[in-house]
């Protein structure tokens, strides 16, 4: 898989996979049942295949590190790649529903690892439906950051329950996030931006991050610039709507 020179889907000059060979349907229906393996529980997630350098089999003691950042609907993986060098000690995973897109991100990471020895060992991707299987991947309070960048808008009212931010799904995100953990959302669709903000405002376990903190956070500027979707919006001079919230302890 790493012999890029003979791989026609990879660029000869950079060794990176070329996107046009990994085109996929623009939208997937998260409600339909696809067939991909799902870990029975978080302890069944095979870290050694995702992060071989951190979990080499020869190292008996092994690392007890756990994934801390999750990029939900990661698309072509731009955010993971930027975060990888910004937080080199943190394990992160992208979750993506479309199989071709997931394959592309996988190849992209492998190629980056080859081109930059020792780097990009902390990022990986998995094909899954995040709306159904978050609890299969992460234990309670395991994550410190979750990203939802430019999610599919699902405009029609009857399709609102397909939205990846919803009152019910926020319960699961609150479960996976540690107290103080941060959920980052951004969109160029105003209506969706309002929706995400309203869902988060109405949820008892989230509060908006104060603007000083948002400005000081090195991740903030990546939200609009690091991903493929963000760059597209930027090229077209589109407006973006940000909602960044912190996970609170529930008040009983």
């Amino acid at each position: 898989m790493l012999e890029n020179k003979t791989n026609p889907t990879h660029s000869k000059s950079t060794g990176l996979p070329r996107k046009r060979f990994y085109r996929a349907r623009a939208h997937s229906n998260p409600l339909s049942d696809s067939h991909f393996p799902v870990p029975v529980s978080p302890s069944h997630v095979d870290y050694s295949t995702h992060y071989p350098q951190h979990f080499s089999t020869s190292d008996q003691a092994g690392s007890c590190k756990k994934i801390q950042f999750a990029d939900i609907g990661c698309g072509f993986g731009g955010l993971l790649i930027s975060l990888s060098t910004l937080f080199p000690e943190t394990l992160m995973i992208g979750m993506e529903l479309r199989d071709k897109v997931t394959e592309y991100v996988k190849e992209r990471i492998l190629a980056l690892r080859v081109a930059n020895p020792g780097q990009y060992q902390n990022i990986s991707v998995v094909r899954t439906n995040s709306m159904k299987y978050i609890p299969n991947f992460f234990e309670k309070a395991q994550l410190s950051k979750m990203f939802f960048l430019f999610p599919d808008p699902h405009f029609k009212e009857k399709n609102h329950r397909r939205r990846v931010i919803s009152p019910f799904l926020l319960d699961e995100y609150a479960y996976a996030l540690q107290v103080g953990g941060i959920i980052y959302t951004i969109t160029d669709v105003e209506e969706l931006g309002d929706w995400m903000k309203a869902c988060l405002d109405n949820h008892p376990m989230f509060e908006a991050l104060p603007s000083e903190e948002l400005e000081a956070d090195p991740v903030t500027k990546l939200l609009s610039s690091a991903t493929e979707e963000g760059q597209k919006v930027d090229r077209n001079g589109g407006q973006t709507f940000l909602a960044v919230y912190r996970r609170l302890a529930p008040s009983l």
């Binding site: 029975v40 529980s41 978080p42 609890p135 299969n136 309670k140 009152p167 926020l170 319960d171 699961e172 609150a174 479960y175 949820h203 008892p204 376990m205 529930p250 009983l252």
Partner: peptide, 19 residues
């Protein structure tokens, strides 16, 4: 966790029993 006001939703997940 079964909340005091369940009509406002039950948001706090105690655990998932997976296996």
């Amino acid at each position: 966790v079964f909340p005091r006001k369940p009509l406002d939703g039950a948001h706090e997940i105690q655990s998932f029993s997976l296996g």
